[in-house]
Amino acid sequence: MAGDGDTERLDHDGGTPAEADGAGARDAADRDGRGVYAISVAAELVGTGQQNIRQYERKGLLTPERTDGGTRRYSEQDLETLRRIGALLDEGLNLAGVKRVLELEAANRGLTEDNRGLADDNRELRADNRGLKEDNRGLRKDLKRARGGD
C-alpha cells in the first residue's frame, strides 16, 4: 500500500530524531541542505523523470551533492528547486527562462537579506547617534559652565 510506505518514510528517515539529540531546528536546517535522496527518489518525490533532473543539472539549474563514487544526492533544498522548476515550466517558461527566474529569485533573496542587515545597522547607528547627541549636549553644558556662562 502506497500510504503505508509514505507513513514509514515520515516516521523514520534513517537518521536520529531531532528530539533525541537535542539539536532541534539547527539539525532540521542542516538536513535541508544535505544531499540525502538518490535521483530516483528525488524524481518520484517531485513528480518528474530522472532524465529531466539530469537535464536541469546540465543546464545549470541545480547542482546536487555527489558521493565519493559520483552518485548524485539531492537535498530538501534541491527538491524545492525542482518543484519550482516544474511550476515555472507549467507556466510556459523554457529552461533558459527558468534559469533566469531562479537566478533573479536568488539575487532577490540575497538583496533582501542585505537589506535586513542594513536596516539593523541603521537602527544601531541611530541609537549611537542619539547617544552622541546626548553626550554633545552634556559637553556643551560643561563647557559653558567652565567658561562661566552658567
Rank of each mutant, 00 (worst) to 15 (best):
G3D: 12
G3S: 11
G3Y: 04
G3Q: 11
T7S: 03
E8D: 15
L10W: 10
D11F: 09
D11Q: 04
G14Q: 06
P17V: 01
P17I: 04
D21A: 00
G24T: 13
A25Q: 06
A28T: 14
A28N: 12
A29D: 11
D30G: 10
D30P: 03
D30Q: 14
D32N: 02
D32M: 03
D32F: 01
G33Y: 13
G33H: 14
G35V: 07
V36Y: 05
Y37R: 01
Y37G: 02
I39A: 00
S40T: 11
S40L: 03
A42M: 00
A42T: 07
A42D: 01
T48C: 05
T48R: 08
T48Y: 03
Q50S: 14
Q51M: 12
Q51E: 15
N52W: 09
N52V: 06
Y56T: 09
K59V: 06
K59Y: 08
G60Q: 12
G60H: 11
G60K: 12
G60P: 11
L61C: 08
L62Q: 00
T63G: 10
T63A: 11
E65R: 12
E65L: 10
D68L: 07
G69N: 02
G70I: 12
G70S: 12
G70Q: 13
T71S: 11
T71Q: 12
R72V: 08
Y74S: 05
S75A: 07
E76M: 04
Q77I: 13
D78Y: 10
L79W: 00
E80S: 09
E80A: 10
E80P: 03
T81C: 01
L82M: 05
L82C: 06
R83C: 09
R83I: 04
R83K: 05
A87W: 10
L88D: 06
L88K: 07
D90A: 15
G92N: 08
G92R: 04
L95S: 07
L95A: 09
L95P: 05
L95N: 01
L95F: 01
A96E: 15
A96W: 11
A96R: 15
V101S: 10
V101R: 13
L102D: 01
E103G: 08
E103F: 08
E105N: 07
A107C: 04
R109W: 10
L111G: 01
T112V: 14
E113H: 08
D114E: 15
D114W: 12
N115G: 09
R116Y: 07
G117M: 01
L118W: 10
A119T: 15
D120Q: 14
D121Q: 03
N122F: 09
N122H: 11
R123C: 05
E124K: 14
R126I: 07
D128G: 11
R130K: 01
R130D: 03
R130S: 06
R130P: 02
G131Q: 14
L132E: 01
K133I: 02
K133H: 09
E134G: 04
R137E: 14
G138D: 04
L139N: 01
L139E: 02
K141Q: 02
K141T: 00
K141E: 10
L143C: 02
K144S: 09
K144G: 04
R145Q: 07
A146F: 12
G149N: 08
G149Y: 05
G149P: 02
